[in-house]
Amino acid sequence: MRQTAWVVMGVSGCGKSAVGARLAQALGVRFIEGDAFHPPENVAKMSAGVPLDDTDRYGWLATLRSKIARAMEAGESVVLSCSALKRAYRDILRGNGANRDDVRFVHLHGDRALIAQRMAARPGHFMPPSLLDSQLRDLEPLQPDEAGITLDLRDPPDRLVEQALAALRDTRPD
C-alpha cells in the first residue's frame, strides 16, 4: 500500500487539530499540527487581526508540503491540520499536481455562528474571531476532481473521525 497524507482542512475554529489528532491516532500515523509551522511574522500579523494573503501563506504551505514529501519518502503516511482554504493552496500541498491521490482532504465545514462561538472559546489563540469572515471569504470548497470529503463540523470529533475513516476506506489507494 502506498503512503497517503490526509489533510484535515477548514477555517480557524472548525476543529482541524482535534479531529486531525484523533484521525492520526486511529490510523496509527504521525500527526502534524500545521499552525506550529507558521513563521513568527504570520503569527504576529494574525494576532494583530490582519488576515494573511497569498504571499504570507506561500512559505508556510511550502514548508508543510516538504513535511508531507519527507514523510512519504520515508515510507510514512501522515495526517496534517491545515486551513488549505484555496484550491491553489491545496495544489501546493499536493505538490502542484504530482501524485494527486497521495494527498487527500477532510474538509470540516459548518455554520459561521458555531465557528465564531468556538473561536471565542479559545482564549490566548493567535487567531482572533475577527479574522473568521476573511477566512470564509477565501474558502474555496473541494472541487469534484479533488480527492477528499466534506464533513459537518456539528458532529462530535469522534463521529467525524468515524465518518472520515469510512470514506477513506472506500477510496484508499492500493
Rank of each mutant, 00 (worst) to 15 (best):
D54L: 05
Q143T: 13
S81W: 12
H107S: 14
P129R: 12
T55I: 10
N99S: 14
I92C: 08
A71L: 07
S130H: 03
N96T: 11
P40C: 03
V29S: 05
D101V: 10
G124A: 12
E73A: 15
P129Q: 14
L61A: 12
P40S: 10
L151P: 02
P123L: 10
R90L: 09
D91C: 02
D54E: 15
G110I: 10
V7E: 01
P40I: 02
F126Q: 05
S83M: 01
E140R: 04
D152V: 09
A44Q: 13
D170I: 04
A116G: 13
F31C: 01
V50W: 02
T55G: 07
I149N: 01
R94D: 06
I115M: 11
S134G: 10
Y89E: 01
R94G: 14
R172F: 10
A36R: 07
R172W: 13
A21H: 11
R65I: 07
H109C: 09
R137K: 14
F37N: 02
Y58W: 15
D158S: 15
A48Y: 09
R122C: 13
S66D: 15
D152I: 10
A166K: 13
A116N: 13
A121C: 06
L64P: 07
A84C: 08
R30A: 11
A62D: 14
M9N: 04
I32S: 03
V11F: 00
V43Y: 05
D170P: 02
L151E: 05
L80G: 00
V19Y: 09
Y89L: 00
K16E: 05
D155L: 14
A36L: 09
L139N: 03
P144G: 01
M127P: 07
R2T: 13
R100L: 13
V161I: 11
E146H: 07
A147W: 12
G124V: 10
R137F: 09
L165S: 09
R159H: 10
L160N: 07
F37L: 11
E162Y: 00
V78K: 05
R137C: 09
L153V: 13
A26V: 04
Y89T: 03
V103W: 07
G97C: 09
D56A: 00
N96A: 11
R112I: 00
M46F: 05
